[in-house]
C-alpha cells in the first residue's frame, strides 16, 4: 500500500474532525517506505478518532505521551503505531496531537479502546495535571503518594508558580 492511499483512507474516515495533517515519507530501496503522519484533532473528536484507527488494523500506543506547553493550552501528543496488513515493513506511525486549554485541563480516557494506555495516562495525570475522565485507576504511578497535591513536576511555565 502506498503512502498516499493510507492518508486518503484516514482522511475519509475522520472527515471534518481532522484539523491538520502533515506527512513525512522516507523511501528506502525495494519499495520499503517509512511513513510518519502527524494529525491534529479537536478534543471532542479524539475518542472517535482512536476508535476509527483501531478499526483499521493493529493499533499500538508506542510512546509515553509527549507534550508541548503554550501560554493558553497544552498540546498532548499520542504516537500510535498502526499496522494494516500482514506484509513486512508495513507498520507506520500516526502521531495524533490534541489541544487542551489551560482553563479546562480534561480529556476522555482511551483505556476503553487501548487498555495498554493506562500507565501512560496515569503518568500524564501526575506529571502534567491533566485530568483523564473515566480512567479506571487514578492513583499515582511514579511520584510518591506524599507529594503535595497540585504540584505537577513536568509542567513548565507559570502554572508551577501558582501551585507552590
Amino acid at each position: 500500500m502506498d503512502a498516499q492511499s493510507i492518508v486518503t483512507i484516514i482522511q475519509e474516515k475522520l472527515g471534518s474532525h481532522l484539523q491538520a495533517s502533515r506527512l513525512k515519507v522516507k523511501n528506502y530501496h525495494a519499495g520499503i517506505i517509512r511513513l510518519h503522519l502527524w494529525i491534529s484533532i479537536d478534543r471532542e473528536a479524539f475518542h472517535f478518532t482512536v476508535n476509527t484507527l483501531k478499526s483499521l488494523g493493529r493499533l499500538h500506543l508506542s510512546t509515553a505521551m509527549a507534550y508541548k506547553e503554550y501560554e493558553d493550552r497544552i498540546e498532548l501528543i499520542y504516537p500510535f503505531a498502526l499496522k494494516m496488513d500482514d506484509a513486512h515493513y508495513s507498520e507506520f506511525m500516526i502521531i495524533a496531537s490534541v489541544d487542551i486549554p489551560h482553563n479546562d485541563l480534561t480529556i476522555r480516557t482511551i483505556t476503553d479502546i487501548v487498555p495498554g494506555a493506562l500507565f501512560m495516562e496515569r503518568e500524564v495525570m501526575e506529571m502534567l495535571g491533566i485530568v483523564i475522565e473515566d480512567i479506571p485507576d487514578s492513583r499515582r504511578l511514579f511520584t510518591p503518594s506524599s507529594l503535595q497535591d497540585g504540584y505537577f513536576p513536568l509542567r513548565n511555565g507559570k502554572n508551577k508558580e501558582d501551585s507552590k
Binding site: H60, A81, K83, D86, Y89, S90, E91
Partner: peptide, 10 residues
C-alpha cells in the same frame, strides 16, 4: 503475536 519492530518498521 507477530510483533517485531525490526520487521514491521524499517
Amino acid at each position: 503475536l507477530l510483533k517485531d519492530v525490526r520487521i514491521d518498521y524499517p
